[in-house]
Computed example of a mutant assay.
Amino acid sequence: MSWVILIGAGIMEVLMVIALKNSESFKNKKWSVIWFLLSLASLFLLSLAIKDIPLGTAYGVWTGIGAMGSVVIGMLFFGEKVSIQKIILITLIIISIAGLKLV
């Protein structure tokens, strides 16, 4: 169950980055509040996950999901350049997350 919670924390982090982008440097109050709530949700879920998952593993997976997710969201919805290098690096993050789960 802790791994499901950790994945949820990572997803909240990705959503938090989307809200941050839409907050326009915290000028848009609605998106700024959404960012704040998602930040709290992400950190709360991470805090639950580290009760059963080692801190280094949990943090690595959490940041990996956030990094990978934000790159994918950027390419799909914010017009960021798609490149083979990005795809390869995202794949390496996925492999790293799987490796952390296995060890």
Rank of each mutant, 00 (worst) to 15 (best):
K27H: 01
L37I: 03
S96K: 07
V103T: 15
T91G: 13
G79T: 03
T63I: 15
T91S: 14
L92E: 06
S39M: 15
G60P: 13
I88F: 15
G99D: 15
I73C: 06
G69A: 01
A19C: 09
S42R: 07
K81H: 00
S39A: 13
W35L: 14
L46Y: 12
L15F: 05
S23N: 03
I88T: 08
E13I: 12
F36Y: 10
K81S: 00
I53H: 09
A41E: 03
I95K: 14
V14Y: 03
V72E: 01
S96T: 07
K27M: 01
V17A: 08
L46T: 12
I7T: 14
I50H: 10
E24W: 04
E13Y: 13
S42A: 14
L6R: 06
I53W: 09
A49W: 14
L43M: 14
E13S: 12
L43I: 12
V103S: 12
W3Q: 07
S32D: 09
W62L: 14
N28T: 05
S23A: 02
I84F: 09
I94A: 07
M1N: 10
I53E: 06
S32E: 08
E13F: 11
E13H: 15
T63F: 14
S2A: 07
F77T: 02
L46S: 09
F77W: 11
G69W: 05
K101V: 09
Q85L: 13
M75F: 03
L92S: 07
Y59W: 13
D52V: 04
L89W: 11
L43Q: 09
A67Q: 08
W62M: 07
L48F: 08
P54A: 03
S47V: 15
